[in-house]
Design a protein around this nucleic acid. Structure first.
Length: 419
RNA sequence: GUGGGUGUAGCUCAGUGGUAGAGCACUGGAUUGUGGCUCCGGGUGUCGCGGGUUCAAUUCCCGUCACUCACCCCA
């Protein structure tokens, strides 16, 4: 077979879907408990949306986007993340005019053309939330506390919560100057990428992993020293609230994150299980108070996060094997298959999940099938049962069997299932 | 983008210079219409692809592609 899923993109088959459902349902339930409502956005957006929000000099925009020209000569891009679309939609629909605070969540595929690795795919799934209109810091703390609760209700116990503040535009500008002054003398020692970054976006130099650059970055001034009083008060307020909530966290001044749109609060949750390999960032987020305005909307503060579903899945414990079938109907003779099909419809109409093997086959093989797919009950129908208007109700778990009137079949099954 | 590993049955993997095996899965049976456990039986492979060496290559060599892991980046 020479037609395969494209590199870095995976099929999810039914055998693994129940874990996905468990994850998605837990996420939905949790965030809906905080008043978030689902929104769905296009997977394809104008390229400029991401360039302007994520930042021209970020890795995502520089080398990871799936960008193409459509037949109308427009440059389009498969979304690499969800926040840009959320903001675009928020501004496009003037959502701020309908409510003071907007809380949205989304789940869906994202695309980045990176080299695939464990827990990193070119099409991957993210679930995320955005809050528009609340400047914080209480909402920042509540969001962080919410994700901690979410992670824990997924059965993931070993995590670390990192928080940091990179200040607002004013602090960023002061810091930029301080950083440039510091980096100036070292300029020639930096790697080629960083020499370019000094001009384009000096903060990115702090992120570089080239040994010499990392050494230089290690002694660079800290942005925490350049926060304005307001930024500082915001960050203090966040930490105080986390303390009141009893949410564990650690301040990490080196947490910068790869997207340029962040302001003030940044946070990240790291998984610790070895199942994750090197891709241990389960979820990340932060505040982006300038983005709505920069897209032409009103000055609206915002905060959000996104989590990587594949990574969460790897960190989650395996669940109980479940069954997708309540009743398996067995036709004892080939001649009653029509009657068995009718019985199946009767039970389904009563709300039960019913399977059968309409190909027929031996009684033994049909029962084996019922056992294999983990059906709780087998219902056997043969010539004599049809004649008498009854069915054999076999409880595969309790190993019991009763002959019951066919009319009572659905109700008897319900009684057994609810036991 | 850089480095490493691996490609043999549907899956997980053994193995050999003379074209190949196990377990699981699937399937039939163990006396009449009763699953799981046990026992007996059954099918399945362009041994990733291309080239080279050789009388002979799945095995050795080279290339290539794919997958995978790490670096990096991130979710």
């Amino acid at each position: 077979m020479n037609l395969r899923a494209v590199k870095g993109m995976k099929d999810i088959l039914p055998d693994e879907i129940s874990k996905w459902h468990r994850l998605e349902n837990t996420f939905r339930h949790r965030v809906e408990g905080y008043g978030f409502r689902e929104a769905r956005f296009p997977i394809v957006e104008p390229t400029a949306l991401f360039v302007r929000s994520i930042g021209e000099t970020t890795d995502i925009v520089e080398k990871e986007m799936y960008t193409f020209t459509d037949r109308g000569d427009k440059s389009l891009t498969l979304r690499p993340e969800g926040t840009a679309s959320s903001v675009r939609a928020f501004v496009q629909h003037s959502v701020q005019a309908r409510e003071p605070v907007t809380k949205w969540y989304y789940i869906g595929p994202m695309y980045r053309r990176e080299r695939p690795a464990k827990g990193r795919y070119r099409q991957f799934y993210q679930a995320g939330i955005e809050v528009f209109g609340d400047p914080g810091p209480f909402v920042d703390a509540e969001v962080i506390d919410m994700v901690v609760g979410l992670i824990s209700s997924l059965g993931i116990t070993e995590v670390e919560v990192l928080v940091n503040s990179i200040g607002g535009p004013e602090a960023r500008e002061h810091y930029r100057e301080a950083l440039l002054a510091y980096l100036g003398p070292y300029r020639a020692e930096l790697c080629a990428d960083c020499q370019r970054r000094v001009d384009a976006n000096p903060l990115r130099v702090l992120d570089c992993k080239v040994p010499r650059c990392a050494e230089i970055a290690a002694d660079a001034p800290s942005i925490l020293k350049h926060l304005t009083d307001e930024d500082r008060a915001h960050f203090d307020g966040l930490q105080e609230t986390l303390t009141i909530l009893g949410t564990p966290y650690r301040v990490d001044g080196s947490l910068v994150r790869g997207l340029d749109y962040y302001t003030r609060t940044l946070f990240e949750v790291l998984g610790k299980g070895e199942a994750l390999g090197a891709q241990n960032a389960l979820l990340g987020g932060g505040r982006y108070d300038q983005m709505v305005k920069s897209f032409g909307g009103p000055d609206t503060p915002a905060i959000g996060f996104a989590m990587g579903l594949e990574r969460l899945l790897m960190a989650m414990p395996e669940g109980e094997p479940d069954s997708h079938v309540d009743v398996f109907i067995v036709a004892a003779q080939a001649g009653v298959r029509g009657e068995a099909t009718l019985l199946g419809r009767e039970l389904r109409d009563a709300g039960l999940r019913v399977e059968s093997d309409l190909r027929g086959g031996s009684l033994k093989s049909q029962l084996r099938r019922a056992d294999k797919i983990n059906a709780r009950i087998a219902m056997i129908l043969g010539e004599s049962e049809v004649e008498e208007g009854v069915v054999q109700l076999k409880d595969l778990q309790e190993q019991t069997q009763d002959k019951i009137p066919r009319a009572e079949a659905a109700q008897r099954v319900r009684a057994l299932l609810s036991k």
